[in-house]
Nucleic acid binder design. Structure first.
Length: 437
RNA sequence: GGGCUCGUAGUGAAGUGGUUAUCACGCCUCCCUGUCACGGAGGAGAUCGCCGGUUCAAUCCCGGUCGAGCCCGCCA
């Protein structure tokens, strides 16, 4: 029976069988140490028999091995135990020298990110590199757990669409049996439609943006958490739900992965006392930032990137929180499906900022059929068009007041760990010039 | 789409208008019984991104091109 690395120390005095990848050889003359990697980590094997060592001659890191040996308690060994008198069996030999080293820290310097992704297949075998994606998996699991507990139904919606209907970002077009199809920029329409059935829904899936953006925070294929909830009392309820979910996910991760986060040099987590994420209106932030930096941003309809960093630094320092909401966007920023507060002259839309970056947009939607048609017409859209027909059906036949969020999972992972580029939080990132691996 | 910066062994870097382009890691050979980024001795490995120009001479200077990084716009 195969014993996994983390269980080896429980078998002291027993002859056991392990399988894994050759991770490191250290030849010290009459004594050789090898590390065998499996899904749990590393096992140290000590080999003295020259014939056994010779089996590894010409074989490189990555060679798949089976090892039989006696478990010996050894304080000098990592994990407190190691295998002695080992017999090696090469299951899959690796005869070509790997192009990169995987037992040492993987470079994440901006100018070397291209190499990082070029050799992703191999560098993901680095234990430190793996932590990023284990944390990512745990984050989405914590989010799913929270949403399931709050009676959200997980849905999956099509990514192949007849054409772009949402407007805004650039869309990818592709040939679809002679017709033109597009890739979904978001599940916006579908999740709103599903509010008409399940009240509360969410989806974790890919969205596609053909924006020619070359920055540290853009991907052409991104992972979005889309949430939509009906029968809400107002915008605050949506902001609170998304805020609570985010805090739950972060708290969970910082407990489950405390050691991993520490070894990755993640910042200390600061969440607001009492659990309420502070809110500043766009106008307030413009004023505060403008005063501190002596510039006038009152005509900007969104925050500029430096403002996002600034307000986050302010919130961390003055209010002890890594999360902050920017709310009440100017009416000029509204899309046709947003709920507008006519009295205040603002959009009921909040951006969730985390450690200097926008990670989610959290708006309330217009749910009245007549108002929707009016807003769409005003936006220059043809409401009779096929792309809107099915969407509007949901409104015509009864949608309660609802709101939700588009939440960037890649960005959440990036900022949770304290990485410098959203691509580092993505296994196989897609950007303007990268379609492989 | 606009701006700025950068392309040198497999990887990461240094460097120069002029003989054999430097270093670290990795790789190969040998030595080494407690390594864990092991250590030591030796060795192989680079048409200096590509094309053109200036020059007696270009990896270096100039132009173009391709590729990469960062910032802005836009967004998650």
């Amino acid at each position: 029976m195969r014993i996994l690395s983390s269980d080896v120390s429980a078998h002291v005095g027993e002859q056991i069988h392990i399988e894994g990848w050759l991770h490191k050889k250290r030849l010290l003359g009459g004594l050789t140490f090898i590390n065998v990697r499996d899904r749990r980590g590393l096992t140290q094997v000590v080999i003295k028999d020259k014939e056994e060592i010779e089996k590894l001659r010409g074989l490189h890191i990555g060679t798949v091995l089976a090892v039989e040996g006696m478990v010996v308690e050894e304080p000098r060994a990592p994990g407190g135990a190691e295998l002695h008198d080992a017999t090696l069996t090469v299951l899959v030999p690796v005869t070509d020298e790997p192009p990169i080293e995987i037992d040492k820290p993987i470079q994440h310097k901006p100018e070397n990110l291209d190499t990082l992704f070029e050799y992703r297949v191999l560098n993901i075998r680095n234990l430190q590199e793996q932590k990023i994606f284990k944390i990512r998996g745990s984050l989405t699991r914590a989010i799913r757990n929270f949403l399931d507990e709050h009676e959200f139904t997980e849905i999956d919606t099509p990514k192949l669409l007849a054409e772009a209907t949402e407007g805004g970002a650039e869309v990818f077009q592709l040939d679809y049996f002679g017709k033109t199809a597009t890739l979904a920029q978001s599940p916006q329409f579908y999740k709103q439609i599903m509010v008409g059935a399940f009240e509360r829904v969410y989806e974790i899936g890919h969205s596609y943006r053909a924006e020619p953006s070359a920055t540290t925070r853009h991907l052409t294929e991104l992972t979005m958490l889309d949430i939509e909830m009906g029968f809400v009392s107002g915008h605050d309820e949506v902001l609170d739900m998304v805020g609570d979910m985010t805090q739950h996910a972060l708290k969970t991760i910082y407990e489950q992965h405390a050691d991993d986060l520490k070894s990755l040099n993640a910042p200390e987590l600061k969440l607001p006392e009492g659990g309420k994420i502070p809110r500043f209106t766009i106008a307030q932030i413009h004023e505060m930032y403008g005063k501190a930096n002596k510039i006038d941003l009152s005509n900007e309809k969104d925050l500029i990137p430096d403002e996002e960093k600034w307000i986050c630094e302010y919130a961390r320092k003055e209010l002890g929180t890594d999360l902050v909401y920017a709310t009440e966007f100017p009416i000029g920023a509204a899309k046709f499906y947003h709920k507008v507060d006519a009295e205040k002259g603002v959009v009921m839309w909040g951006d969730l900022l985390f450690r200097g970056l926008e990670i989610a947009t959290v708006p309330l939607r217009e749910n009245n059929y007549e108002t929707m048609v009016e807003q769409m017409t005003k936006a220059g859209l043809d409401v009779s068009h096929e792309g809107f027909k099915y969407y509007l059906q949901a409104f015509k036949y009864g949608l309660p007041m609802h709101g939700g969020c588009g939440f960037g999972i890649d960005r959440l992972v990036e900022k949770t760990i304290g990485l410098g580029n959203v691509k580092e939080a993505t296994l196989f990132p897609r950007d303007i010039n990268r379609l492989t691996p």
